[in-house]
Structure formats: structure tokens, C-alpha cells
Design a protein around this nucleic acid. Structure first.
Lengths: 232, 232
DNA sequence: CAGCTAATGCCACTAAGTGGCAAAAATATG
DNA sequence: CATATTTTTGCCACTTAGTGGCATTAGCTG
């Protein structure tokens, strides 16, 4: 059980009041989650410090005191461990999408709001910092960028499947839903880039602001025109 | 000289009339191009036959009678060789973009027309078939899909750079150009998917038709709305 | 405490990708 | 035509990502 791809998707109903969502699990599960988190944190640190290619899996596993075999029971690849933070967000997006109501909005607006709602739920300690490191690594490392893009693509298709299963979108061969979705992804990526390249310590709130700004620019993209430069 | 990434970007001015663009090169260059093309063709064949992961580089190199070292002087990775056909198209898109005139069109229209113009230039024998095989492989092989997506991303940025250098697009932090570009990429991918999944033997002309259709759907993507399903 | 289950560690193995250097082929030069 | 020069190739050794098998350990259950 518990294949690498699917994170910890087995949260047991909580007993008391406030819990970090990982408490009250059987000891075994908690231990698993701890090593998983240790791998993510240490990987982000080491990759940032010595570079992605400059860090071997053996070094990472030594640092966390875990066998390489165990690493691959938790993650699909070396790239995978470093992109885990972003994957958390999209997993929640998918969950949100399962229960949201259209309420007269366009698909684009609905997806934007879902994304923002999911972002509001990323309350885990240090999440913003992890996403930041992850993003910067992706920019600097081709293979990580490729992996992230691939994940994005798979997630897009999953989102599209949920849209089609829950909503009436007419002809399944209609190209518009995927165009709208790719627009959402584009806005998200762009917001993330801007957010990550800003100096200082970005917060979840500032990411939300960047997201809103990116979405606001969408309508203008269609009518944008260009003039030949006169200078240079 | 001649790094793996940059294909044959050194076409010498032709002497006589009609030439396949690779003639009249020094013998050495022609030989290089021949082995390169042999690697591409054989790779597409073997990958399609026995699967991408079911074919080792050693097997491919044996079949073409070339050392593995030579393979890596021509291509960046195992994935790279199989996505060469698509890369050819985008290289021409970039060239076209260097000389095109805005002529009152929107950026979106200009990019669409450039893409169609580039497509018109893909006259190499069997190009359509190669793209078809390449695309189907990408759909079936995660690592190839990731590689293709990464290439797309890099190319997008290159296109964006050309746009900014040649045209007056206002604030460089403006988000609209990239949104427009990602829309173009989305339409392209979608057209390619539809084209490749159609039965029979797709042609360049039918790809052009799919492309026009995809672009026609763009404006509707913004205003698309959804109703909750009543069935199921 | 005994017995079961599942995660882990260890070992050996395949295959992608890289670097170095000598052999060979193509081109330029006398 | 022979030779010097430059470019390309082949070969070999090496690192590292990723996988499969099996014994061991640690958490769970009656």
C-alpha cells in the first residue's frame, strides 16, 4: 500500500479539537510521515546549498539516515521530493473542486476561486518557504522544471476530468475547457514566478495577491497588439 | 562546435536551384546530418515497436552502428532524439518571428499565422509521420512527455524574448504577452492531440485545419460557464 | 507474550549519461 | 601526390538514478 505518487491521503478523523491533521494516527503512520517530511526538508536544504546535481541521493539518504530503498518508497524520483510542496497545493485544489458550486461564475472564475481557497488551506508550518525553495530550484534545474511541468500537465487532466464529471460542459470534444484550464495554469505559474523572484520573504498572502493580479490580466491577453519598435 | 541542442543551424547558401536544404554542404557535414537523421528514424521506429523503456541506447546505437558517445554528441538525452521532429517546427517558428510584421493584428493572431507559416515550411520527406510517431510516444511515455513540455517552456521563453526585442509591448512586467503565448501553446498542443488521435494517416494540411479550429475556440474559453450535472 | 503484518535495510544489478584519449577520416597545404 | 591539421568518432572506465529480492526489524493484535 501507499504508493509513492499519492502522498498521505489517509487522514483519520480527529478526536480532540486543534490538530495538525497528522496527529492521532497510528505510530507507524506518524513515523512514515516524519521521515517523509525529513526527506523533503533536507532535500530542499541540500539542493539549495550544493545544487540539485551536486547532491547525490546517497548523500541525502545518509543525512536523513534512511536507505535509498526507503527514499523510493516515498518518492517517484529525485525530482519528485523537491516538488512535493507544490503538489500539496494542487491536491487540495482537486479536493475543493469536488464540492464547489458554479454559482453563475465562468469556469475561469470558478477555477481561480478554487485555487485561492486551496491556498488558504496551506497552513502547514513553513509551507511558503518550502514552495519558495522548490520554485527557485525548478528555475535553476532543467530536469526539475521538466518534472514540475509534467506534474502540472497530469494535474490539469485530472482537473479536466473532474470538471467533466461534475458539470455540464457540452460536447466532450469542445476545446474551450482545456484552453481555460491552461490559462489558469499559465496565470498560476506566472504569479509563482513573480512571487518567487521578489526579494524579501514572501508570504502566503502576497502569493494570493499575485494570483489575483495574474488573473486580472487574462482578458487583456486576447486583445493585446504590438507595434514594431522604433528604437534600437 | 555543434552542441547537441542546436540542430543544423548552419545552412550554406545554395548554388543551383532546388535543393533539399542539406545539399552542397561539405562532405563532413552531410555525413553528420545523415547519422543524425538515421538516429531519429531508427529511434522512432524502435521506440514505437518495443516501447521507449523497452529499448536501450545500446540497442539503438548498435542498430545505427554508431557509438553511444556519438549519440550524445547529437542529442541531449534519450528523450531528445524522439522529440526532434517537433523541435524542427518551433525552430522555424522562431526564425519566422524574426522577420514578421504586426500589420494591425493582435499578438495572438500574429503568433497563429506564424505557426501556420512555419508549418507550411515543413516539407521534409515524411515529416508528418515522424511528428505523429513522436507525439504518440510522448503520450505513452511520462519521461518523454516531461521532456516535450520542458522544451515547450524553453521555446516559449525564447519566443517571448523575440517579441519583446522586436515589438513595443510596454511594461516588461506586463503579464499579458506570456498569457497570450501560453494560449497559443495550449491551442497547439490540443490541435496536435486531436490530430494524432484521429485514425488514418494525418497530413500536414489536416494539422493546419486542426490548428485553425483550436485557435477559433480561444475567445470562447474566457466566457465559458458550467452548470451542475443533473444526471448520474 | 506470541504471532502477524508491513516497513525497512542491504545487496546486487541495469541502464543513462560523462570525461579522456587515441584512432580515423576529411580538409587544407606543400 | 604526400603530408600536416583539424574535426569527428570509437572505446573504456566511471558515476549515479532507479529496481527487484529477501532477510530483518518494528509496530500492531489477540
Amino acid at each position: 500500500m501507499s504508493e509513492p505518487g499519492s502522498a498521505a491521503a489517509t487522514p483519520i478523523a480527529s478526536g480532540t479539537a486543534q490538530e495538525t491533521a497528522s496527529e492521532r494516527l497510528p505510530l507507524r503512520e506518524r513515523k512514515k510521515l516524519r521521515t517523509r517530511q525529513a526527506l523533503i526538508d533536507t532535500a530542499l536544504e541540500m539542493f539549495t546549498e550544493r545544487g540539485f546535481d551536486g547532491t547525490t541521493l546517497d548523500q541525502l539518504c545518509d543525512a536523513v539516515e534512511v536507505s535509498k530503498r526507503t527514499f523510493f518508497r516515498n518518492f517517484l524520483s529525485k525530482e519528485d521530493v523537491a516538488s512535493a510542496p507544490t503538489q500539496d497545493l494542487w491536491r487540495v485544489v482537486l479536493e475543493e473542486l469536488e464540492t464547489c458550486e458554479p454559482g453563475g461564475r465562468t469556469v475561469l472564475e470558478m477555477l481561480r476561486d478554487t485555487l485561492l481557497a486551496a491556498l488558504d488551506q496551506m497552513t502547514a508550518e513553513g509551507w511558503a518557504r518550502r514552495v519558495l525553495l522548490s520554485r527557485r530550484l525548478a528555475e535553476a534545474t532543467p530536469s526539475m522544471n521538466a518534472h514540475g511541468l509534467h506534474f502540472c500537465d497530469r494535474t490539469s487532466r485530472a482537473v479536466l476530468a473532474v470538471l467533466h464529471s461534475r458539470f455540464e460542459l457540452g460536447d466532450p470534444a469542445d476545446l474551450r475547457p482545456r484552453l481555460a484550464l491552461d490559462l489558469v495554469v499559465s496565470a498560476f505559474q506566472q504569479a509563482l514566478d513573480d512571487w518567487a523572484s521578489r526579494p524579501g520573504t514572501p508570504t502566503r498572502a502576497s502569493l494570493a495577491a499575485d494570483l489575483r493580479e495574474a488573473f486580472a490580466a487574462v482578458p487583456g491577453a486576447l486583445t493585446l497588439t504590438a507595434e514594431l519598435r522604433t528604437d534600437a
